[in-house]
Design a protein around this nucleic acid. Structure first.
Length: 257
DNA sequence: AGAACCGCCTGCTTGC
DNA sequence: TGCAAGCAGGCGGTTC
């Protein structure tokens, strides 16, 4: 599932491919997306990432915001033949951009471009002091907190598990029990991990692919996610899996306190 | 405030 | 082999 590194990868590739290009056609194949209108003839002036959203900024001041949710992805194709699970196509003079989404959870909205808060994005102007002040004394579990998109933007289940492992913090700890040192460690590893994952063009678990249909390579770097029953690379004990609000959490009971 | 659950979806895995 | 049930989960919404 696309999280910050995957969305950043796509966003950069898209910017490269369609920035400055005019949208010659727009074809919607999925009834859930029929609201996508008034796109033809517009020129793309930028493609930006906003948390897990991809914003395709147009020359009329609007922006097409795409959230890929679970299985959404973009594919660039020279020909206009609809690929399997193709939900939407935008035609450019250089080729065709398809939104592919087997499970149809992805959402597309067209709206006036609004500036979001870069202080919530770990790789932008992240506001560490503001975070600790506003959320550091919450009673909620630390994993739920860092996955809350209103609090931090971009972190999903896979990277949340990996970040907490690197930082040696148990996913069920109440946020309020973390010291400033714990938070510093957590955000240090979060930054490093997310940057490294972008370098690897994302984590290709299940069906994630980049704009050219290529797999990322970060799945080989995962230490706990999907590793239930395997041996921890640090201590040799068995990786555990628990449910937190219906979602799987993977962690090492020995290394994460 | 916080946690759990549901609905949205479809492909894949599991069990008989 | 084939079919049905179960499972996966980001997010918004509801409920306790």
């Amino acid at each position: 599932m696309p999280e910050l590194p995957e969305v950043e990868t796509l966003s950069r590739q898209l910017h490269q491919k369609i920035c400055g290009r005019k949208i010659l056609s727009s074809t919607v194949y999925d009834d859930k997306l029929v609201h996508i209108k008034n796109v033809r003839g517009r020129r793309v002036i930028a493609v930006e990432r906003d948390g897990k959203m991809i914003d395709i900024c147009l020359d009329d001041g609007n922006s097409i915001s795409v959230h890929l949710r679970m299985t959404g992805r973009f594919l660039w194709q020279e020909n206009a033949a609809k690929p399997k699970h193709g939900r939407w196509r935008m035609g450019f003079d250089t080729g065709n951009l398809f939104l592919i989404d087997p499970r149809r959870f992805a959402t597309v909205t067209k709206l006036k471009k609004v500036k979001s808060d870069p202080g919530k994005d770990i790789l932008k102007k992240f506001d560490f002091k503001g975070f600790v002040k506003n959320y550091g004394s919450r009673k909620t579990k630390v994993k739920s907190l860092i996955m809350d998109q209103r609090v931090l933007s971009g972190i999903g289940n896979i990277y949340a598990c990996e970040i907490l492992f690197k930082a040696g913090i148990h996913p069920e700890r109440a946020a309020a029990t973390l010291t400033e040192g714990d938070w510093k460690k957590l955000f240090h590893h979060a930054k490093e991990l997310l940057k490294a994952a972008i370098q690897k063009r994302g984590t290709s678990i299940s069906d994630w692919r980049d704009l050219s249909g290529c797999r990322g390579e970060n799945q080989y770097e995962l230490k706990v996610y999907g590793q239930e029953g395997n041996i921890c690379c640090l201590c040799g004990k068995v990786i555990a899996r628990i449910k937190q609000g219906g979602r799987s959490t993977f962690y090492c009971p020995c290394c994460q306190k």
